[in-house]
């Protein structure tokens, strides 16, 4: 039974599972949208005293913060008990492209060449992690949602604004990957 979960999943199983999580939250009377938590945490830390945008009762959104806590635990469970032991099967073209940027493919979830404190402490590392995080936080709130809120919940509800947001996600992602990456990872 456990090996059924720990083996590598075909993409359609993953997609269906995500649709089921969305459905579960709908039947709990909630909406699947993770980035709202960033606002909730700001409000919880007292940002409401500095900006009226955070002047709301974050306790009403507590359920989503519990969902966040669960997601951290889920990551922990996955690494300790649900590893398949097989390396990821990334496309050969991507492996070759990343090699040119001096980011070797090591079969793990994240490239060990980048995802370590030594790199994070360099100027480029700080720019990537802190700066990238800033863009995520600023952009998701500006757009009113992230991948879960727009690409999954919004598109499932046939919302044109969500389609515009998703197109924006791709414009940004393509610009970063194809124009900025050669400068960042060189």
């Amino acid at each position: 039974m456990l090996s059924l979960v720990s083996q590598t999943w075909p993409w359609w199983v993953s997609g269906l599972a995500i649709a089921l999580i969305m459905t579960l939250l709908i039947f709990f009377g909630k909406t699947f949208g993770f980035s709202s938590n960033l606002s909730n945490i700001c409000a919880m830390l007292g940002a409401g005293r500095l900006a009226s945008f955070f002047h709301f009762d974050w306790k009403k959104e507590q359920w989503n913060l519990w969902f966040l806590v669960g997601s951290v635990i889920g990551g922990f469970i996955s690494v300790h008990w649900l590893q398949s032991g097989e390396p990821m099967r990334l496309s050969a073209a991507t492996v070759a492209d990343l090699q040119k940027l001096h980011i070797p493919f090591d079969g793990k979830l994240e490239p060990s060449a980048i995802f370590n404190w030594q790199f994070a402490k360099t100027a480029r590392g700080l720019l990537m992690f802190l700066g990238g995080g800033f863009l995520i936080g600023f952009g998701t709130r500006y757009a009113g949602g992230c991948t879960s809120g727009h690409a999954i919940s919004g598109l499932s509800n046939l919302q044109v604004p969500s389609l515009i947001a998703v197109i924006g996600f791709f414009i940004g992602g393509l610009i970063m990957t194809h124009l900025f990456f050669p400068f960042i990872f060189n």
């Binding site: 995520i136 998701t140 757009a143 515009i164 610009i175």
Partner: peptide, 21 residues
């Protein structure tokens, strides 16, 4: 807001390889 915010988020998504979840 959807387009501009979306583009800004997309830049961050690509560089960190992660969205908020």
């Amino acid at each position: 807001k959807y387009l501009f915010g979306g583009i800004i988020f997309g830049l961050g998504w690509a560089v960190t390889g992660a969205c908020p979840g």
